[in-house]
Design a protein around this nucleic acid. Structure first.
Length: 274
DNA sequence: AGACGTACCTGACCGC
DNA sequence: TGCGGTCAGGTACGTC
């Protein structure tokens, strides 16, 4: 599930337990996730303080007092929870971060499919986040910049928006939602979007993401008292997973269709998305 | 260079 | 109940 809004929610949930704290212990319960852990991964974290904890696209970044950066990605099924060292471990609990400070929280990373990964970057090395496109909620992402990024692309707009180099942080769900909101058909070739369509699309992307973050934020309220799991929250979608249902747009009599584009499901309304 | 298919994993769900 | 098939929100890599 984790797209940008989910990762933002995870960041906000973990922040009080990680930012400004040190790792008192780190336990790897297997040798790899998607990739092998770096040599001496635990040793390079233990005793180090997280001096800055942030998000870039779907990545979580923990800058360490050692100068290294811990980069984490949730893949498809990764989730974090906050417990304590007495809590029983579950299947697929792969990484344990025991943090210093109040409550001595234990952060557990659970990932059944193991498409997620964690890596350590040397100071100044942007690693795999070097090639990412603009952050959708920032000023760097706007109508003209999106229009320019799409102008040379023959690929369908749906495919282009999933390309993290064009815009960073969108996944299958929010691309479908944003295209529906903007009234743009997912099959359109990227270069055919006009500047004004790119403006509208950019606005929809920001709005869809902001609303999802808001929904995630509200699910965080009871975070400490709930089961502590982070990374999944319910959100009401307009098209995603709604095949056969009537289009949610007030003036539209269409019905939601499902197609496959570059191997992924696309949901859209052929009536109002042109 | 860019586009495309496939691989990486496990679990949930559906139909038989 | 059990089994096989299909699908899943992401990224990387090989091949054309």
């Amino acid at each position: 599930m984790p797209e940008l809004p989910e990762v933002e929610t995870v960041l906000r949930g973990l922040y009080p337990f990680m930012h400004g704290r040190k790792f008192s212990n780190v336990t790897l319960r297997r040798e790899n996730l998607r990739f092998a852990f770096a040599d001496n991964f635990a040793g390079r974290l233990i005793g180090k303080e997280i001096i800055n904890f942030s998000r870039r696209a779907k990545f979580l970044k923990a800058e360490l007092s050692s100068g290294e950066t811990l980069l984490m990605h949730l893949g498809m099924s990764g989730r974090f929870s906050v417990t304590n060292s007495k809590a029983a471990l579950e299947k697929h609990d792969h990484v344990l971060f025991d943090m210093t400070g109040e409550g001595a929280p234990r952060i557990i990373y659970n990932d059944p499919r193991r498409f997620g990964f964690m890596e350590l970057l040397a100071h100044g090395d942007a690693g795999r986040i070097a090639d990412l496109g603009p952050e959708p909620l920032s000023n760097m992402c706007n109508g003209p910049s999106l229009h320019a990024a799409l102008s040379g692309k023959k690929a369908p707009i749906k495919t282009a928006l999933l390309d993290q180099k064009i815009i960073a942080g969108l996944g299958n769900i929010y691309v479908c939602e944003a295209l529906h909101g903007a009234g743009v058909a997912p099959q359109r070739r990227s270069f055919t979007l006009s500047l004004s369509e790119a403006e509208i699309l950019c606005g929809e992307i920001k709005q869809v993401l902001a609303r999802a973050i808001e929904a995630g934020g509200s699910s965080l309220k009871d975070f400490a008292s709930a089961d502590g799991a982070l990374g999944y929250f319910q959100h009401q979608f307009s098209v995603y997973g709604k095949k056969g249902e009537p289009c949610a747009k007030r003036d539209c009599k269409g019905e939601i269709s499902a197609i496959s584009q570059s191997g992924r499901s696309t949901f859209f309304c052929s009536q109002c998305q042109k």
